[in-house]
Nucleic acid binder design. Structure first.
Lengths: 202, 202, 202, 202
DNA sequence: TATTAACCGAGACGGTACGTCGCGTCTTGTC
DNA sequence: GACAAGACGCGACGTACCGTCTCGGTTAATA
């Protein structure tokens, strides 16, 4: 009626494996799961089963589901949008924002990024890691490009460029996270023009 | 923090109770849990236990945890920030954004709202309900105020005011959801000035 | 998000119906369920839904699931094995036991009867009803036939015929309820011979 | 009747415990519940709560409530009635049947055994396990004793002793499971005499 | 014939138990 | 010693039925 558990070995055995090999297996699995099923179905349990790595090992290296998700995301998504500098700030902002919007809307990575931000609202570890590994870096790159525009006299020097980051990329995030309105090309263009030209009558 | 608001010993038996009475018990409990413990600790199980309403009933009326959370939130939070109209659009925007930022930062309701947006990234029911019950309404109110500014010649009529909503309130949400930078009064002021005046040198 | 229940009328309306009509609907449904799915799937809930009779009404007339099952069983199964009397007790017992075994093994009613006996081990209401409505009656009929055999000098008068009931039909029930051994015709024959002739060498 | 034999405050944490320790806790609890409250109140939920073993673990080792009940029963009830052999088959049968009847009527184990047989009518797993672990073994022991009687010429060799098992112990089970008539000592005596001597006039 | 009260259907309600999933902790055995 | 395998206690999930109850509508018995 009972009989305890049977011991059936699988192919690999259970001994120690090289850390890099283990880590790579995990991140590949986590990345796949994220892109195909979303963050809600990314669980330690499933990653362990699918990657052939034990839960013990997972918990050793990734303290929370968010940490694992973030790591898996960056492993799966290599694309790093850079900030072009042709000297024309208006054109460069349009280029970057268009590329950013494209990635967010037309690739599975965009969906995942939104879910990571969502998850980070209730996972402090993830929130911290996300800022440290991603958003603060992106913000700095944007600010640097805008600073160069200030040096060239294209943006007033009394302007806090960090605020512009929120009014450009932050506005896009707003439409992504709360999709009352779509992210169109006209929207992108308007974002830039509104700030550079102001919205009051001349 | 009150703990057990259960109905034990009310001598009522187990039969049917008036739907409104049940609904009120649930929303009160859900609202309390949300404001005191956050959305992560809002479970059907706990709401059922604390409200004295059975899980069956909860699932009947609220199809997902997000739906319950949203209903509980609006039941608990009555404050409806309105959009002032003194004729001076710059002053009115400052007033509204300051009030909005205050609520989001200094009241538990702000934290909950961020968590709801986060949860809605993986809960389509909640996302839809959130837009229908809250965000699209707020967006409309903001747009109406901006339209009046257009009629008074304070904002150019070729401007899409919906974009301004993302560049003002959306920018604040950005700092709330991804807190690399704090929401300060200087930030609020800059948001409005950047858009009204433009950021290029005169 | 909530919306309460919609009111959609079905064909019949909800007013009072003649008691006999209601009762017939219930018993037909209960009998069907018993014969097709067994007693485990006979629930008040399912009978109510399938018969179009409200749970209120079911509980009014049948205090327990066992009571309903028993009633449904007798409504579905009309076959009443009688006890033949040709004057030859050995032949008559064989005839009756064979017929009894046939019904128990080759008709769904046999399965249901076993399940009713099983259920009655933990349902006192059912146990009482079963004895009152069925088994004590069957036992009496058997005893009467055996008494006539005593009067004819075919069975000694110092024999308690009630014990014979247990050693004939009871033995069959034993093999039905705990099926270590099958109920064969040889078994039936042996039952009768063993008792009439004794098992000791002559 | 002791109620909570839980493991709270044992300072053990939540990790894995030795399987035997877990198993012992479960069987003790299940046995207690069976003997004090009967099979109807033996639920996975209660066993889990009272034993401090999680439901997950229970479902892993015992696929159905019946399986758990049977295991718990044999863990609680050690008494194994043996079949005496003094050479006098009539006396030995009386002795064994009396002891059997005593246990069935005057100990809680008897009630439980009847309930297990009842439950097995709708639980195929339990039915199989019951036969494998208990009834077929008991039947074999009885048959062996009767075979020896045949070898000694006390029972005719053309008699199928398996049928006698049904007409002796099976008859007792009949009165236990369908208690129209009581199990008295006179009944036990008559069972044996009827078969050994036959019921026809000499 | 018109009222009305008994009765019924529908199904919501507070519960208990179900069987499953994932969490984070722990033990065991293997390499 | 690091690892896989996975058992373990726990808590939540979403569902099924239980037996009790409210509600509204119909019909059969009354006025």
């Amino acid at each position: 009626m009972n009989g305890h558990a049977a011991k059936e070995g699988n192919g690999r055995g259970r001994g120690r494996r090289p850390a890099d090999e283990v880590r790579a297996d995990v991140l590949r699995t986590a990345g796949d799961l994220l892109l195909t099923e979303g963050i809600a179905d990314l669980t330690f349990e499933r990653v362990a089963k699918a990657s052939g790595v034990s839960k013990t090992t997972l918990y050793k290296w990734w303290p929370s589901k968010g940490a694992l998700a973030l790591d898996g995301y960056f492993h799966a998504v290599r694309e790093t949008l850079d900030f072009p500098d042709t000297g024309d700030v208006r054109a460069d902002l349009l280029t970057q924002l268009r590329a950013f919007a494209h990635v967010m809307i037309h690739t599975p990575g965009g969906r995942v990024l939104a879910e990571l931000i969502g998850e980070s609202q209730t996972d402090q570890d993830l929130a911290t890691a996300y800022r440290k590994l991603y958003s603060s870096h992106r913000r700095r790159l944007a600010a640097e490009r805008l600073h160069r525009a200030q040096e060239l006299g294209q943006i007033r020097t009394d302007i806090d460029v960090q605020v512009l980051v929120d009014q450009l990329w932050g506005a896009v995030y707003h439409r992504l996270l709360i999709p009352d309105e779509p992210v169109t090309d006209a929207f992108i263009v308007a974002l830039v023009n509104n700030l550079l030209d102001g919205v009051r009558p001349k």
